[in-house]
């Protein structure tokens, strides 16, 4: 009896260690390239070799002076902000529809709403390009915004929907019951309740749009975004300024994702628990 217990505890410990090791490996493979890239962005040597040369800001100064990079950064930021606002708005509406209404075909509605991220990016990008060309609107900044909004809205919806699921449906009815019109209840109850999720969705969709390459590459035309310009520089030559841009993109994205996570986890006001 004792022996079996002992063995079982030992087996648990071994499994725990194996899982921890697995987790460490996952993190290692994800972060090593990123960290390497950050380190080499401060390295004075032209080629990424070890031993490292001296510390330098040179590559950052190069991209700072590059008008093309500035132009791309501006495009990326405009696209990311517009996309995040549009995608969050659409995501909120979709999630609220799901929360509030029961209707025939609701499941198909949800599947359709969540579909875009499951389509391979290349196919989505090609389809967008073909469609925009047919309409004669390809290669404009706002075509990138439309394409990114399609891609990002499901993320926003998923985040906001999770928060709405925690809302007591009586809250909204209670607001009507106390004299709030449907709009007033939306403004005073639903939006404040989901505020943390809305901020989270804004950050998340902004990060996705800022990082996105494939769709942007197909539909951007002359309005290159940052990931597109990175590819162009890479195709030209091996140049450590890529590491500098990469670091900039990584820091921006990870900041947005962390903010999104914080708002999502903290979910500021807690529901009172009903006993």
């Amino acid at each position: 009896m004792n022996l079996i217990m002992h063995l079982r505890i030992n087996a648990d410990r071994v499994i725990r260690l194996l899982l921890l090791g697995y987790l460490a490996l996952v993190f290692f493979f994800i972060f090593t390239p990123i960290v390497t890239s950050i380190i080499f962005s401060f390295n004075s040597e032209r080629f990424p070799t070890i031993p490292l040369g001296s510390f330098t800001w040179k590559w950052y100064q190069t991209i700072y002076a590059d008008a093309d990079v500035w132009e791309a950064a501006k495009t990326s930021i405009v696209v990311a902000i517009s996309t995040s606002i549009l995608a969050t708005l659409i995501g909120f509406c979709t999630a609220y529809t799901d929360f509030r209404y029961q209707f025939r075909g609701k499941n198909s509605y949800l599947v359709l709403a969540l579909l875009p991220p499951t389509i391979p990016l290349i196919i989505l990008a090609l389809a967008m390009l073909a469609w925009f060309s047919r309409l004669g609107i390809s290669g404009k900044i706002w075509t990138i915004v439309i394409a990114h909004t399609v891609l990002c809205a499901p993320f926003a919806m998923a985040v906001i929907r999770l928060r709405l699921q925690q809302m007591d449906p009586d809250l909204e009815s209670a607001a009507w019951n106390l004299g709030a019109s449907e709009w007033a209840a939306m403004r005073n109850i639903v939006v404040p309740f989901t505020k943390s999720a809305i901020i989270s969705a804004l950050c998340l969709t902004m990060a996705v749009s800022f990082d996105e390459f494939a769709v942007a590459w197909f539909v951007s035309g002359l309005n290159k975004t940052i990931p597109v310009i990175i590819l162009e520089i890479l195709q030209g030559n091996i140049d450590p300024q890529i590491n500098a841009i990469g670091t900039f993109v990584f820091v921006t994205s990870i900041t947005l994702v962390i903010i999104a996570q914080l708002f999502f986890i903290l979910r500021s006001p807690k529901q009172p628990t009903h006993v």
């Binding site: 009586d170 209670a174 019109s181 505020k195 009172p272």
Partner: peptide, 20 residues
């Protein structure tokens, strides 16, 4: 008549107090 135009307030089983 819409619920908001009635002035028939309800005390809810879940209380439905606004948590924020």
């Amino acid at each position: 008549i819409k619920p908001s135009d009635r002035n028939t307030p309800l005390v809810w089983q879940s209380l439905a107090l606004f948590p924020f």
